[in-house]
């Protein structure tokens, strides 16, 4: 029986890379969504939230099409790195970024909305340019939103199955993450390891949700 640890480490590094990258990508997007009066906003918002409602297989299928070397994106990646995006760790990161995007954007968006315009205006009259307003005022005031965004996208990436199976397949050490490993173990009737892995994910998820809910404002009844 092979060890389950490679799958655990792979999952954790995938989730770490994804959630860290997402904080950077989601910041300007969430900022724009929280501020914009543009007519395009509902459309952009819908596209951002799409991974929430789309079956992972559909998302995975389109990503696979996009990653294919026949497609400009897949082709460019192949030319630059010499490997295909599909069935690789890099492909998994790309897929996870899209799959977990709403879990980073939503908390940031509502955090930025809570910050509002008033403290930023106050900062501007004290000499802070827009970038300084963000780093000295908006970011510290939205820090709970950042923590929520991080833990939620981390946990969500840890738990993805359908997209990984479609885009990454089942390559040990490359794309075989915990959720796939659990599936394999159950298929081969190795229930003991399936229990360990499932219990671990369950505990992690509970922990994450406790963190998120304890960050939220206490509302008096």
């Amino acid at each position: 029986m092979t060890s389950v640890w490679p799958a655990v480490w792979l999952s954790i590094s995938l989730a770490l890379i994804t959630s860290t990258t997402l904080l950077i990508i989601a910041t300007p997007l969430a900022w724009w969504l929280s501020r914009s009066a543009s007519k395009m906003r509902p459309l952009i918002e819908a596209i951002t939230a799409l991974p929430l409602v789309l079956p992972p297989t559909v998302l995975g299928f389109y990503l696979l099409v996009l990653f294919s070397p026949q497609n400009p994106i897949g082709q460019a990646w192949l030319r630059v790195t010499g490997e295909t995006l599909a069935f690789s760790f890099s492909g998994l990161v790309f897929a996870s970024l899209i799959y977990s995007l709403p879990f980073a954007v939503q908390p940031l968006r509502s955090a930025f909305q809570d910050v509002g315009r008033a403290p930023l205006e106050a900062a501007s009259t004290l000499g802070a340019n827009p970038v300084q307003q963000f780093f000295y005022v908006a970011f510290p005031l939205a820090r709970k939103g950042y923590l929520s965004a991080f833990v939620l996208s981390f946990a969500h990436t840890l738990g993805e199955f359908g997209v990984v199976l479609m885009v990454g397949g089942n390559i040990p050490g490359q794309t075989r993450v915990i959720s796939i490993e659990i599936f394999n173990r159950v298929e081969t009737l190795d229930y003991s390891n399936a229990h360990w892995l499932s219990g671990g994910l369950l505990l992690t998820s509970v922990l994450v949700l406790v963190i998120v809910f304890s960050l939220q404002k206490r509302v008096l009844p």
């Binding site: 008033a118 205006e121 340019n129």
Partner: peptide
């Protein structure tokens, strides 16, 4: 505003 060299006190104090 950040280049006007002004100070503003708002209706609400707007402290950070």
């Amino acid at each position: 505003p950040h280049k006007r060299g002004i100070g503003v006190v708002f209706q609400e104090a707007r402290l950070f």
